[in-house]
Amino acid sequence: MTTTVSTSSDVLAAPSREAIGAVLDPTSRPPAPGALAASVAFGWRALLRFKHMPEQLFDVTAFPLVMTLMFTYLFGGALAGSPREYLQFLLPGILVTSVVMITMYTGVGLNADIGKGIFDRFRTLPIWRPAALVGALYGDILRYLMASLVIVAAGLALGYRPGGGVAGVVAGIGLLVLFAFAFSWVWNLLGLVMRDEKGVTNVSMLLLFPLTFVSNVYVNPDTMPGWLQAVINVNPITHLVAAVRSVMSGESNPGEIWRVLIASAVLTIVFGSLTMRRYDRR
């Protein structure tokens, strides 16, 4: 493991007491950064990690692409007469599903990250306490945006024509990313509570599959039995899909949009504060 580093330059460069003494007194000792500056610095860390581990981005591009293609051609002919027609209904739903699915990497990533010593250093800094987690979410937002763009681009190529135009699509993605940010706090909490990455992944999957499938993503629930419709109606993903669909089609449904905004606020407040409590208590 150390074969590459015992070079002669390493010996020559060995630190001397004088050299270290000379750099001990920093020229300036600025006040601790504010909440925004600190979380932006952590956002920068997330970007650096993408740079060093670009494979992280594979999940957020390949998975949504496969989902879009698969469901369009698998169900399109049977459900709506043609894949193209089905795509008009499906695309907002598959957009929501894909982004909500990748929110789980937030918890997995935090769980892997926090076990390492680096978080000990972060937690001993005199900065705004949630900064490390909020900053990581900035990086996640970037992933949600990338996944959204991939799906919309694929959709357009396959014949998706949103009635809401560019503004509708932008608003739909905005609403979705906002919800995803709020929903990520659930995974942050899970990432802190669970012992290992595998546990986080398992629990996430267990929650996400019913949430995304027992919804209005793939078909209109009108033809389903009443009890199932009731279940689907309490699923927040259903309302998110309805809101995004309405905005993207150009016929916004203010009721659903409000529900999404309120749900996002509640998720952030409840799971955000539970997460921070846990974060401080470890």
Partner: peptide, 17 residues
């Protein structure tokens, strides 16, 4: 926290950076 620094037993630096 404003007074201290910690070098933990297990590397307190980010290994991917």
């Amino acid at each position: 926290r404003g007074k201290l620094s910690l070098t933990g037993q297990y590397a307190s630096v980010d290994e991917t950076l």
